[in-house]
């Protein structure tokens, strides 16, 4: 016996699924930002051994499919390291690592984009490495990175849909369930797609506003 009509409760289910997707997206983005930026700073200061390890790890994460990484974490960790992970944990670990690897690439080029001459100026006026990083490099690197970062995040939001395959109740998984129940794929996936679209637009919009603020110094105000 199968109820094949849509009910108002389905909307609640969809919104719950969207909530799960967004929560995973936000948390893995924040973790990815912290780790990716830290990696970039390690590389900027050419920390011996660590810098090479970071570069190697980022290469691995960038050049293999997220789905494969997800399976390795979800099935591999329990099998080989005897660490049990829940689907949500596996999703957080995988997506954070993947975001970190791409954010690392953006952060490295953003830091490199800051002119050496200003860094020299800051040095001769006696600023410490940390002060130079915080006051001179970071604000400009952020302004440089925000564009590519927004693009990456819009993509990472869509990538979260992959975690539905290990049973996380995200938007795609809810769509899958509704689809199997109602057998109206065109309606279900259109609604699911529209929700992803709206969420992605929101991310892009926030990124654009943030970019405008960070790039205030390059805005032409006339003489």
């Amino acid at each position: 016996m199968r109820y094949d009509q849509f009910t108002p409760y389905d909307l609640v289910l969809l919104l719950q699924g969207l909530g799960v997707s967004l929560a995973l997206f936000v948390s893995t983005t924040l973790i990815g930002l912290v780790i990716g930026t830290l990696w970039a700073v390690i590389r900027f200061y050419r920390v011996p051994v660590l810098a090479q390890m970071v570069a190697f790890l980022a290469e691995l994460l960038k050049n293999s499919p997220v789905l494969v990484q997800l399976f390795l974490v979800f099935f591999g960790l329990p099998a080989f390291l005897k660490i049990n992970v829940t689907p949500t944990e596996a999703a957080v670990i995988t997506l954070s690592g993947n975001s970190a690897a791409f954010i690392y690439v953006i952060a490295v080029s953003a830091i490199e984009s800051v002119g050496r001459d200003q860094i020299e100026a800051a040095r001769v006026f006696g600023l410490t490495r940390w002060q130079i990083l915080r006051r001179v490099i970071a604000p400009q690197a952020a302004a440089f990175a925000i564009g590519p970062l927004t693009g990456l995040l819009v993509n990472q939001l869509q990538v979260t849909s992959l975690i539905s395959v290990i049973g996380v109740m995200d938007l795609t998984k809810v769509g899958n369930i509704l689809n199997l129940r109602t057998l109206k794929p065109f309606v279900v996936w259109t609604v699911v797609g529209a929700l992803y679209y709206l969420a992605a637009k929101l991310v892009a919009h926030a990124g654009a506003r943030f970019e405008k603020r960070l790039r205030a110094h390059t805005a032409w105000k006339g003489l």
Binding site: G115, D117, Q118, A121, A122, R123, V124, G126, T218
Partner: peptide, 15 residues
């Protein structure tokens, strides 16, 4: 460095 101040050829201001 605290005792000397440098002015650069290409200004080197923080943009």
């Amino acid at each position: 460095r605290k005792r000397s101040g440098t002015v650069f050829q290409l200004f080197n201001l923080y943009p």
